[in-house]
Design a protein around this nucleic acid. Structure first.
Lengths: 337, 337
DNA sequence: TTGTATGCGTTATCAA
DNA sequence: TTGATAACGCATACAA
């Protein structure tokens, strides 16, 4: 795979590489005629500057590193689309890594990205990343980092999240107002920010209506342990009449578990899922969802990051942006209440 | 973001950069004691070789470029997981780009990847890539390229696909054997390989059972045009009693369209979807699917690619691998036949 | 066993 | 207006 370099052009045109470089960069300290010649010839040979050489020289790459727990997930793939849409327009490209919910993989991924001299980092923490020193070090060294969705409270930088508290509050309130008495919450690892916020929202709604908080109605599922369905079965033993579920996969597992136990939805148990599943409408009954604005989260996050990158000289303006979350109550999901 | 370089180590230890380099590379032409010292100090400073400098020097990157139409799609995200699993173990990393079903984006993506000196390319063509000269040129220049799923017949290199012919044949035969008389086929752009293979399988099954082939029972949907649901409505005018649908999104659109028209599935119309949707079991009735081995396709593709890359000196051994496809007939989807 | 010099592709600085 | 040179980080051919 040989490629055309400035040298090739210089040799062919009997010029020095610096002159060719100037011509290509559109410098003004150059003869118009020479410039024309160079550009023409470069075009003919389909010359492309070598970004690797540029990276080495400038110690940057015009690339953004993105680390997500997984991409086979509606929320994250939609977020990535939002990130890409903006990055593409602003001349950056996006390098995506998956942590697969593993702390170790996350650390390795980030090392790779840093070694590759990404100009900034967008990250949603793996569910096992309780220690974030790998990130705080980078942040202190001056690498622009923006968190989205699963954030680290201990690191002071920009963050973009959905209003998980409000989402959980609204969903729980909805269940209460439609007559549910024993509302369970099936959620993810207790130490990730999203889980905590949702749990708080759930509790706040219970409190508002003077519902008792029952520990046994909360179940956490941790990735890579037992089957999520089993956890739902345990939950069912405590006789909930509604379940508020966090995240795509847990929602699917919950529905599968209920189906397996032949539980009638929503007659016996109502379900509300925090999910960006595209099939919620097709289910029977249609699933009531609390939907995160994934695309917008991605867009907002990359915009904040690019701002940090491009104003790197000034003292950084960190922002935490909380985007509205939408609850979609689909017809018939509450029909029997 | 300053980083530790060989120079820093050399200076601190009063050595030349070459000695340090040798120590780090584990060369044998070096004093054991010096080596120990260097390694120790490098460890202490958390030295990491700069892959960009290496890329510039060696004209390669230990990175694989992957171009897919979109990642917010079960099939492709699962494929990417397969690719990553192998690449990671063999010391390569994976750079993912989306063509968003656009020929122009695909061309730009590939240019980026080539400029970044990827060691090889894995690609599933966008639905608008009828012209593949951008790829054949690269292939002729010696860049290892492996196609998966949506392949280019005109380029002679390794390819990994599912047995789409057989999948469509089996599905159609299943519909025939369960008593369907007017089997429609709702599918994607006519010029992509997958569409063609499936169409052939569908036709072959009809032929085997002496069913007439009816042009009006075939509908193609092209991304970015009108609504997929509208196309299904058109199809319904021709009174099918079964629909074989290609791809995730089309299957969802088809189900949504049927639901909107209050068509009873499978009583009035049976549906079989070529899809890797994880919710097929949860639908009512459960959806019969023809399921591509996405993870394995990814694994196989990257293995072939790495073989091409690592045996670049020898004359390349191109293979076309067709992986088995699985039809999952879920209970009750045929209950009334 | 170690050091010096060179080159990968590009641009910035300085000299002509 | 143009050219020569150095530098980015690393590895290696060659010299010591």
């Amino acid at each position: 795979m040989e490629t055309v370099t400035i040298k090739d052009i210089a040799k062919a045109l009997n010029l020095s590489t610096s002159t060719v470089s100037r011509a290509l960069r559109g410098s003004h300290e150059i003869n118009e005629e020479t410039k024309r010649m160079v550009l023409e010839y470069a075009e003919k040979l389909n010359y492309r500057p070598n970004p690797i050489a540029l990276s080495l020289k400038e110690n940057r790459s015009r690339a953004i590193g993105v680390v997500v727990p997984e991409i086979a997930n509606n929320f994250f793939s939609q977020t990535i689309n939002g990130i890409e849409a903006i990055a593409y327009n602003r001349g950056y490209h996006v390098v995506i890594f998956q942590s697969h919910e593993s702390y170790e993989r996350e650390v390795v991924n980030i090392e790779h990205l840093v070694a590759r001299k990404v100009d900034g980092l967008l990250i949603s923490l793996s569910s096992h990343s309780t220690n974030v020193s790998h990130l705080s070090e980078l942040h202190e060294k001056g690498l622009p980092v923006v968190f989205f969705d699963r954030v680290a409270d201990t690191i002071e930088t920009s963050k973009v999240v959905a209003d998980n508290f409000k989402g959980a509050f609204t969903a729980t309130e909805h269940l209460i107002l439609t007559g549910r008495k024993r509302i369970a919450h099936f959620t993810g690892s207790p130490w990730i920010s999203v889980t905590q916020e949702r749990l708080l929202g759930y509790k706040a709604a219970l409190e508002k209506y003077n519902f008792p908080f029952e520990e046994s109605l909360i179940k956490h599922y941790e990735f890579g342990t037992n089957e999520a369905k089993e956890v739902v079965f345990e939950l069912l033993e405590n006789k909930p009449d509604a379940i508020l579920v966090s995240r795509d996969k847990l929602t699917l597992s919950c529905l599968a578990a209920l189906k397996e136990k032949k539980v009638k939805i929503p007659d016996e148990i109502a379900v509300v899922g925090f999910t960006n599943l595209t099939v919620a409408d097709l289910l029977d009954p249609p699933l009531t969802t609390v939907c995160q604005p994934a695309f917008e989260i991605g867009q907002t996050a990359i915009e904040l990051l690019l701002d940090l990158i491009e104003k790197k000289d000034k003292t950084p303006q960190y922002k935490t942006i909380k985007l509205g979350i939408e609850m979609i109550i689909r017809e018939s999901s509450t029909k029997l209440l």
